[in-house]
Simulated scan of single mutants.
Amino acid sequence: MAPRVQFYHNAENPLALACELAARAYGSGRKVALRTRDAASARQLDQLLWSFEQQSFVPHVMAGSPLAGETPVVIGHAEAPNEWPHSEILFNLADDIPPGHERFRMVIEIIGQGEAQKLPARARWMHYKQQDLPLQAFDAIRREAL
């Protein structure tokens, strides 16, 4: 089954939005893969998941960890190939098409406010559209469909 693809445009802080959406997905019993642009962003996201909500805990590990298969939220990055241990939701914060995205039930693209993020996002949108994947776009600030 082909994945549904959602784009969250205009995110003020893409990493914070990824944390929020991943926490919500985890809270509803889903397994999540978070893919950032590079190792530094992955470490930043790891730290943010520990601290972004004082009253909640989102169990997570880095891709490649021996515990990845048992952990509901796994963080990886585009600089290293990732074998994701599960295939429910993939959050992409990198500029390229995630390899293996077709095996996920849902792909969520989080796009920042700068032109440097918007241009590659348009190319990804066109790629998914050419694959005839179901697409939805949301404004990340207003949290409404576009």
Rank of each mutant, 00 (worst) to 15 (best):
S65L: 06
K118P: 09
Q130R: 15
R43V: 07
Q54A: 14
L48D: 02
V61I: 08
P3F: 03
A22H: 03
R142I: 10
Y26E: 07
V5F: 00
F91K: 02
P120N: 05
S87W: 04
E109M: 01
P85V: 05
I111A: 00
P81S: 15
I141S: 14
I97G: 11
N82W: 02
W125C: 07
G29M: 03
A18V: 02
V58T: 13
L135G: 06
A121L: 09
Y26Q: 08
E53D: 15
F104R: 01
G64T: 06
S28M: 10
S65Q: 10
L93H: 04
P120A: 05
Q117P: 00
L146K: 13
S87P: 01
N13G: 04
E12H: 11
R4H: 09
G64D: 06
F91P: 02
L48P: 03
A2Q: 12
V61A: 05
A22W: 02
P66V: 10
I89A: 04
P134C: 10
A2F: 10
C19K: 05
G112Y: 01
Q47M: 07
V107T: 03
A68S: 11
S87M: 04
S65N: 12
N13R: 10
F104L: 01
E115H: 06
L17H: 02
P120L: 06
E115M: 12
A94T: 08
S41Q: 13
R4P: 00
A18Q: 05
M1K: 02
P134D: 11
H77L: 04
C19R: 00
